[in-house]
Every structure is written in C-alpha cells, then in structure tokens.
Design a binder for these strands. Structure first.
Lengths: 254, 254
DNA sequence: TTTCAATGCGTAAATTTTACACAAAGAAAA
DNA sequence: TTTTCTTTGTGTAAAATTTACGCATTGAAA
C-alpha cells in the first residue's frame, strides 16, 4: 500500500494538492461530504494530488468521481490556500498519535505533512445520485449537515467557510439549482434551496415571480402528490436557457 | 548568478509560483506593469516563487515590493492557473531561441519550464508612487496601457484578462479607488476611474449622488485649479468609513 | 365531514433607478 | 478687455423595480 502511494507520488505534483467541498441538498439542508481517516475519528474534505500530465480541474474531477461515482461534476475553483502551517496544523495531539498508529510514525512527515499549497474547489451535486466512497486513507465517507460539521483536520473548516461564501456570492449573481436539485422539483423546493444557501426567507409570491422572470424554468403538467396539502406543480430547468442565463449573469434581487 | 538562483530554489517551492497583475490608473487609462526578459523582446507579468517559510500572500507582497518599491500593497488572489502546458507554452519559436542565447540552452528546462501551478494575484497601486524595477530575469520593467499589452509569455495574457474580470466583479460590489487614486482627487477623476474599470459611461449627477450615498467621501475646501474650466472640488476617502463599506459591501447600481 | 397546512394567483405602495437642463467658473482665444 | 469654450455644480420628475400583502383552493389527515 505504501509502495503504491509512493508510485503515485512519483507521477504527481508533491507541493500542490486540492481539496473539494462537495455540497448536496437534502431535506431542506445543505450537506457536505466528509471522509474519516483510517483508525481515527479525524474527518477531512475529499482531496488529493494533481498528476503531472493532468490539469488541476481534471484532477478535481477525477478525485470526485472516485468519491461520488458521478462524472462531469459541477466544479468551481474558489481559493488557493497557501499558508505556511496550514497542512501541519491538527487540533488534537491524540489524533496525530492515532494517525501514527495507523499509518506508521514518520510516514506523514515526508509525504503528507509537508509544506503543501492547496487549491480549493467546491462542487454541486445531486444528493441522491452520490455513492459516497472512501479512499485509501479513510474508511468512511458520508454526508454531514453543514450545521453539524465537526472540527476537521488541517484548515478544512476554513475551506468550507470560504466555499460557502463563494457559493453564496455565486448564487447572488447566477441562477442556481440545476446541479443541486433532481430533474423535476416544485417551486417551494427551489425556494427552500435558495433560502438555505442565502440564509434568509423569501416571500413565496415574489420568489416565484423573480425566478420565472429569468425565463429558465418550465412548468410541467405534473404535480407532486402525496403531501397533506394542495399538490404543487413540478418544474424543470430548460438547460439551454439556464446556461445562457448563467453565462450572462442574473441578479438575485431579494 | 545561476548559482544564486539554485540557492534560492532550494529554499522555495518549485512546483508553485505566483504572478501578479499590477493595475495602475494614469491619464484616464488602466495600466499594467510588465517585465521584458533579458536579451529578448518577450514580456511577462511580475511573479516568482514562494519561500518555504512564507505564505503565498507574503510572497506576493515581497515580490511586488521588489518590483515597485512600495510596501503593504493591496493584493487580491483571484485564480490559480493549473493547466498542464501553461508554463511550457510560448508563442514564437524565435523567442525561445533568444532566451536560450541569453540564459543558456537547457537552463529553463530544469528550472523554469517545468510543470508549475501558478497562483494569480492582482494588485492595485497608486501609479505615481511606483518605481518600476526589473528582476534578475529581465532588463526592463514598465507600465503598459491595458489596450496596448502585447502578446505575453506563457499564459499571462489570459491572466490579465481574468484579473480584469475579477477587478470588475469586485468594483460592482465594493467601493474602489482608495488604492488607485492619490490622496486627493476630484469627482470627475473618480468617475473616470469607475468608467475605465467597468467600461461604460455614467451620468455624472447620478454618479455623484450614488458615491456620496456610500458615505465614504469627504469633500475638502480645496479645488483643483489650473484647468480651462470651473475648478472642481477635491475629495478624499475617509479611511475608516471606506474600510467599513468595503467589508460590508456596496452595490454599484448603475 | 371537518380541519389544517400549503399552494396558486394579482395588485397597490414604497423604494430605487434613470433621465434630463441650466447657470456659473475659469482659462484660452480673440 | 471681452468673448468663447469646456467643464463643473446642483435638483426634480418619470420610469422601473422591489416589497408587502389576502383570499380562495387543494388534498391528506383528523
């Protein structure tokens, strides 16, 4: 195993890594995908290194395909973390000891815990489509509600904070939802997504008016049935119009 | 010289570099600082490598202090360029030959023309305060009007494009001018800065109303004299209020 | 059959943004 | 000295956008 790792590193950039904040939306909450390091209770973001013949964007896609089972993931680079001690930092001494028990003392000093600059990406995925899959360092990969995210390894809490900020900034100037919602959804569901990301409530009549004014949604002749209330219409994004609006930019003026 | 370079590289990250688009404002135009490589007519952005005990931000500051003579420069990281061939690419074969004549054949293969990821920063500086200073690779450092920027080495034209986009985005959501204008300036001068950055004209009455509504400007009892017209008032930014507005964000709604 | 929570739909008020004109200053030209 | 020319300082009305808000209907659950 360690041998494989060394082989991999010979084909990869050593001083640069990347980490991804994968956002999903489920039951009215934003979730992020986290990995638990083998034999420890230390969690971190999915990430990895860039191969020598691979662009940073390709590497992020490759890594997330392995973690989620999806391909062509919506990815956005948002910040590069270049502090000196960002990778050396770890909150609890005991955790380092746990890691040393699992991976061997000194193992990380040469390979993981060196000075590394990390490129931060965030990804938007359809929650239900993801198959969370641990990597070689970890034995658990699962969703966490943004509100419940524990103290993470390295500077990964800061990464999530910045990723969320970048996502919010994006949501204020572009349509959002195509990558986070299933194909068909109701207007209240879309509204709840916006409310969750931007962190405040909207008037549902004004919300509907604004979203429809973007001319990116198509109302279907179907309704969502089963709930104890009036059945809401289903909508779907018209991809071409959505892409055009995203490229041109819209201002979410609420 | 080559010896010094190797010594430097032993104390620096080799697979990561950074490049800075330094914006200045002069005679109603945006300018960028460019360097001409020794013995060639190839131009590039100022940049360099990060020392092992130095953060990326510190490195950008150190490098720009050397190029401009300024300290505490306003710097904003905007994108990290991670394509495979970004550093190998060069537009003209003859230029590579020129470089090989000056620096020796094969010299760059091992040190400069390797796979490098580059962190992009833009800087905003007061044009008149800058002392353009070449570095070891270059024998000329000077301002270029944005419109006249030639075909640059590597992917540096793309970097300037992205930097400008990032600056525009910033200008739409934050006050701007403190770092680009001299201490005292007239309202028309400030307006011309906004028009130059955002690339379109504004009504001067509405512009003044909007900028004054930010409550970041103080009108002085002085006027700019000498021009063949009515003497305009001088203004200056009230630093504390400017900083507060920048942190909170304002929307430039014109 | 009744209840209850959520949906669908439209208008009026408030706020923000845009459009626009004329008198005064000051150097340059006559 | 006078005239010319360019640029500045200032306010209001119209248009557009954003916000606030109520009632009838649906459909499962009580």
């Amino acid at each position: 195993m360690e041998h494989n790792l060394k082989e991999f590193f010979d084909k990869a950039l050593k001083e640069v890594s990347l980490d991804c904040t994968v956002f999903g939306f489920h039951e009215g909450e934003l979730k992020v995908l986290l990995l638990r390091w083998k034999g420890t209770d230390g969690w971190s973001l999915p990430g990895g290194h860039i191969l020598l013949d691979e662009s940073a964007d390709d590497a992020a896609n490759r890594i997330l395909t392995q973690r989620t089972g999806l391909c062509d993931i919506y990815l956005q680079q948002f910040y590069t973390f270049g502090n000196v001690n960002r990778y050396v930092y770890h909150p609890e001494k005991e955790l380092l000891e746990q890691l040393e028990v699992t991976f061997g003392k000194g193992f990380f000093d040469g390979i993981i815990f060196r000075r590394v600059v990390s490129i931060g990406y965030y990804a938007l995925v359809e929650f239900a489509q993801v198959q969370p899959t641990p990597d070689w360092f970890t034995d658990e990969c699962r969703w966490w509600s943004l509100a419940d995210v524990p103290h993470l390894l390295f500077d990964h809490n800061e990464m999530i904070e910045r990723a969320l900020k970048a996502l919010r900034q994006h949501a204020r100037n572009h349509p959002i939802g195509y990558n986070l919602l299933p194909e068909k959804f109701t207007m209240p569901e879309l509204q709840r997504l916006y409310e969750t990301i931007l962190g405040r409530p909207f008037d549902r009549r004004n919300f509907q008016k604004l979203l429809m004014s973007y001319d990116i949604l198509e109302r279907l002749d179907e309704k969502r049935v089963g709930a104890a209330n009036k059945s809401p219409y289903l909508y779907r994004f018209v991809k071409e119009k959505y892409d055009k609006a995203k490229a041109a930019g819209v201002s979410f003026s609420m």
